[in-house]
Design a protein around this nucleic acid. Structure first.
Lengths: 110, 110
DNA sequence: AATATATACATAATTTTCTTATGTATAAGA
DNA sequence: TCTTATACATAAGAAAATTATGTATATATT
């Protein structure tokens, strides 16, 4: 699982943004959602996703809730209050970064 | 030197793009150009820049030419033919990535 | 004259953040 | 039966930064 190079640093923003919209999601669901939304362009690897989720949880941005569905384990993650605030920051940072890159790539329009 | 987080993976694209426009540039000049074009938003650290330039040279994407100006050393870099081709690819990849991220961040507009 | 800042290169140690490769386990489909 | 999908996890390694140094010259400031 992996395709077009994920620019390092953007995975956290993706996770937070999805959780900001969907209230609660589990890991596998996130991988599928990203795949769907990007029409297969972006594939989140498990090796990147799970450690990222654990880190966000350790930082207090996410809460976990374990559930058993169809005899299979699911770990539902949701944003904490801090996580919601941090999501705003991350989204601003990303928007800023895209603007900055566009300024570099299209200097005439600056 | 460092300010807003450089999304890892984009530095090479920035270097190639600048060299595609300016024919030849030296390292320090690149740091100043990026600073100017982004109004100080993005600051390229030397610890990132010089290894990146060396790598691009080793890969055959850049040629170097050493010059002495005001008794100070300058290493002018310019794109090779391969480098020019790779620049096109990198710019496409970046544009693609920005589109992908926008699809994720703005799912309604998709 | 002394000191700080700007110019110009470089590298080493460390950190962050991925990819790749595994591993476990259940359920469903071919 | 075997493969694919679902669902988690971690370890090894690579890539690409940051941070901290180091060297050296030139210019501006005190």
């Amino acid at each position: 699982m992996s395709n077009s190079k994920l620019y390092k640093g953007s995975l956290t923003t993706i996770i937070l943004k999805l959780l900001n919209e969907h209230d609660k999601m589990y890991g596998y669901e996130i991988t599928q959602k990203v795949k769907a939304l990007t029409k297969g362009e972006l594939k989140i690897t498990e090796g990147a996703l799970y450690p990222a989720l654990h880190k966000l949880e350790a930082e207090g941005l996410l809460d976990v809730e374990v559930a058993k569905v169809d005899n299979r384990l699911r770990k539902y993650y949701k944003l904490t209050e801090t996580g919601t605030k941090e999501t705003v920051n991350k989204l601003e940072e990303l928007a800023e970064y895209i603007k900055t890159m566009q300024a570099l790539m299209n200097p005439k329009l600056a």
